[in-house]
């Protein structure tokens, strides 16, 4: 029994309607369809007054909206309409007109806003990347000379290194191995002068390997 008849429903029950005086024809029919979008008005609405103050407000509002639309604070997405596959001439003209409108630069006081909102336009720079090395040498001859000198110096260094290496072979053995492991698995000691090319294979007897 608890709670019976207590729940609130959207409309009144038959019994309740009868108590309210709805008998027979008076009982409204059950509405199954949604009400019309523009139902007929029972009485005509009162005509609105037009005052000077209202006119001022209407004009000011229009001017305000136009001002805001042309301001840099009006942010509309710059996505072209995906539905329109055909672009008419008028569309192009309209976008050209929109682009031609020179909007003043937005003036934000970033100190008064959280720092996370301030996205700077600066690109990230790699440490020490300030020096820009031009890829193309200005004078090829000079560049070649420099490279030759560099090569010569390296050769000299290699010779002196070789002599010193033989002296300190035992000491440097371990670091050399490490270097090898670090870089790649390429066998630097391997040398092929091409003489063995087209020679008979010693392992022919073994037969083909599948």
């Amino acid at each position: 029994m608890a709670g019976r008849g207590r729940g609130k429903t959207g409309s009144l029950t038959q019994e309740q309607l009868q108590t309210l005086g709805c008998i027979g024809k008076d009982i409204p029919q059950v509405q199954t369809a949604p009400p019309p979008t523009f139902p007929p008005l029972m009485s005509k609405p009162v005509k609105l007054e037009t005052t000077a103050a209202q006119n001022y407000q209407i004009l000011w509002r229009e001017a305000y909206l136009n001002h805001m639309r042309d301001s840099p604070y009006f942010l509309a997405p710059k996505i072209p309409n995906a539905n329109s596959t055909l672009q008419s001439y008028s569309d192009q003209w309209a976008t050209a007109v929109e682009n031609a409108k020179t909007k003043t630069k937005a003036d934000f006081i970033w100190q008064m806003m959280p720092t996370e909102l301030h996205i700077t336009q600066k690109k990230r720079r790699v440490a020490g990347g300030d020096k820009i090395v031009s890829k193309k040498p200005r004078n090829i001859d000079d560049r070649l000379k420099v490279l030759e000198e560099k090569e010569r110096n390296e050769d000299e260094k290699d010779i002196t290194k070789a002599s010193s290496d033989s002296e300190h072979e035992e000491e440097e053995e371990a670091p050399a191995d490490e270097e090898m492991d670090d870089e790649n698995d390429y066998g630097n000691s391997y040398f092929d002068n091409g003489e063995s090319y087209n020679e008979e294979d010693d392992n022919l007897d073994d037969g083909p390997v599948y």
């Binding site: 604070y73 942010l75 937005a106 934000f108 006081i109 996370e116 909102l117 996205i119």
Partner: peptide
């Protein structure tokens, strides 16, 4: 960020 900046402004 820009939209929030406008609303804060």
């Amino acid at each position: 960020s820009l939209a929030l900046a406008v609303l804060i402004k």
